Simulated scan of single mutants.
Amino acid sequence: MVTNKRRTSLKDIAQELGVSIATVSRALRSSPEIGAAMQEKVKELARKMNYRPNPFAQSLRKEAPRVIGVVVPNLVTHYYSAVLDGIEDEARKAGYSVISANTHEDSELEVKAIDNFINLHVEGIIACLAQDTRDYSHFEEIYNMQIPMVFFGRTCLSDKFSCVTANGDIAAQQATQHLIDTGSKRIAFIGGPNHLDMVVRRKHGYLEALRENRIPIERDLVVCEKIDFDWALEAATRLLQMPNRPDAILAFNDIITFAAFTAIKQLGLRIPDDVALIGFTDDVHAGYVTPRLSAIVDQSYEMGTETCKLLLKNINGDSHIYKKIVPQKLVIRETSAKK
């Protein structure tokens, strides 16, 4: 038997057994028109070939809806909702509907979401990794089944899938340089898990700026562990209670940014005079706090449209692996320049 390298169809099972597609379909539905022995033979082969029925298909003659599945780590944040808006608008133009799944930063929920999308026979999948995902076997399965897939933001298996990312390394370097140029001397970086490529890029930019300015890298000022408000609040508080505390913080994303902002305020420190702050966050919420937040802003809607465009190329037969970068913007407001 040939090892399955793509999503198994009724036709594949029929060809393997030398029977018609209609016979296979009836056997899988336990139709009395098909003998018990043939039913068992069909069902056994279907299990071995990892066949998954398509609940959207109303009949063999009726075309299933054109659907794309999207997996995001945290749908309630502005970044992911804006990316999803971009995906939905681009998909709609091409006649596709979008189903989204929120993993809540949980790799087990991510695996279940991918499995559900396979069972639903979506035509393609877009995904951003949950922060604790280290095993990529569920994505390997997607690749082996030849289901079109594109990553955005946090990515993996770059030799197998196209991806859309931001220039977080350059943006972090520019932000750190701005802090140095405006009077900050001991700049801390608070990030997420070190295995995430997004964390690696942003931390690299921060470190490069320190090296270029011949500022010693202090390990105690680089704290990377989790994308979680309570953890980030505690981490920022610890940093700011050090005998020789940092006088600036570069924060990895919106959750960590506002946790750091809260820690500074709770300790009665002034922003930016005592502690300057720049965060990777959305432009909308950065203007709502006082003082208004200097921020590295994603073009998240554009990231969504570009990701969907690459997936549609893949669906339409383009097997090239694309690496698209959507640049971020450094927006200077009131939290970063010391007076």
Rank of each mutant, 00 (worst) to 15 (best):
T335D: 10
D220H: 12
T307A: 14
R92K: 15
E218C: 09
K112I: 03
H285P: 14
Q241G: 05
Y301L: 12
L269E: 11
A46T: 04
N253Y: 04
H78E: 15
A286C: 09
T307G: 02
I190C: 00
G86P: 01
H204V: 00
I227M: 07
S81G: 12
E141T: 13
G35E: 11
L28N: 10
R202C: 09
T8Q: 04
G124I: 05
I278V: 14
A101W: 01
E218D: 15
D159F: 00
T23D: 03
D85M: 13
V284N: 11
E208C: 06
K338P: 11
Q328T: 11
A236H: 00
S9I: 03
A36R: 12
I296L: 14
G183Q: 05
D115V: 00
R333P: 06
L250G: 09
C308Y: 05
K313E: 15
Y143W: 10
G183E: 04
K324N: 14
D159A: 06
A37N: 14
P272D: 02
L269Y: 12
A286G: 14
F189A: 06
S25A: 15
A286P: 04
G304M: 08
F117D: 13
A22V: 13
G192M: 05
G279P: 09
E90V: 03
D274N: 09
K43C: 07
R245C: 11
T182K: 06
E88M: 10
L330S: 08
S107Y: 11
G205I: 02
S107C: 13
L277W: 05
I332C: 05
K62L: 15
Q328L: 12
E234M: 07
L233T: 02
R61D: 14
H138S: 14
L28H: 07
Y51T: 01
T103I: 04
V289N: 01
L267A: 09
G168Y: 06
K226F: 12
P216N: 06
P327K: 00
G153F: 01
F261E: 08
V150M: 02
S81K: 08
Q15G: 07
M242E: 03
T176Y: 02
I249R: 04
V122Y: 00
G304F: 02
N167A: 03
I278Y: 07
A82I: 03
